[in-house]
Design a protein around this nucleic acid. Structure first.
Lengths: 126, 126
DNA sequence: CCTTCATATTCCTGTACAGGAATATGAAGC
DNA sequence: GCTTCATATTCCTGTACAGGAATATGAAGG
């Protein structure tokens, strides 16, 4: 049913650079909002709103860990989402912004490990 | 350069069902606007506007053949566009709307062959 | 030149965000 | 209870379309 609507919904999520960066960096493992802030260097509202947008469309899932909200890619993405996330990873490879995000995530990993409410900074599922 | 902008532009093109259908059906070969109208069963303005949108972002190319405007996918799409068009084809496979479009294109092919200003109905480059 | 055909553009209204500022929520600790 | 921290929501303004109706363009043929 829905007739292509689902696919369009996915693309609607992908047509914003901030959301692309969130999804791209999430492929390395779950993260809290404050970690996203440091990795993307964007204000809290912006991050939170876009994560909310993605969550409402099922592109990310989240779980509360005390004060922290830990976001992750869906445990069981359907075919279309899987294909598009893979495509994004592929396209992001030779792009400066995405590479910089990954580099920053790597660099900040030890710092995150200290403050993190769970193992999310290490890439382990919370 | 442009830092991910290009990729976002692609996704902006993909986040509308009509445009998805246009691109999907175009993968089978070039088509005129009037043929799109019959295949998608959508009014001329709608088709023409979305093709204009796609053209402005480099997702399609077009060439005039007398009264007809023949649209085609770019002759030399870059990496990101190629990857996403392939992904679209993949995702469209098990979707009713896209399949119906293809079926209608196939069914209408002989009719197009008569009225077509060129070989575009057959899938040959104009 | 006047038509006709195929296509494009303009003008309109409505809707969906993006982004930032300020404020609200909710959990944990004192 | 009050604070603090992390995160979400609300309220605002501006912009980008989507869609349809009407009109314009541009090519080809009488």
């Amino acid at each position: 049913m829905k007739a292509g609507v689902e696919l369009v919904k996915i693309y609607e999520c992908l047509c914003d650079l901030t959301r692309l960066r969130l999804l791209h960096v999430l492929a390395q493992g779950p993260l809290c909002v404050c970690h996203f802030q440091e990795i993307l260097r964007e204000p809290q509202v912006k991050i939170s709103k876009h994560l909310g947008y993605l969550r409402g469309r099922g592109l990310v899932e989240c779980e509360r860990q005390g004060n922290w909200m830990v976001y992750a890619l869906p445990a069981k993405p359907d075919r279309e989402l899987r294909a598009n996330l893979a495509c994004l990873q592929d396209c992001a490879q030779d792009n400066a912004v995405f590479r910089a995000d990954l580099a920053r995530r790597k660099k900040l990993a030890p710092k995150f490990a200290e403050t993190s409410p769970c193992g999310c900074a290490t890439g382990a599922r919370c």
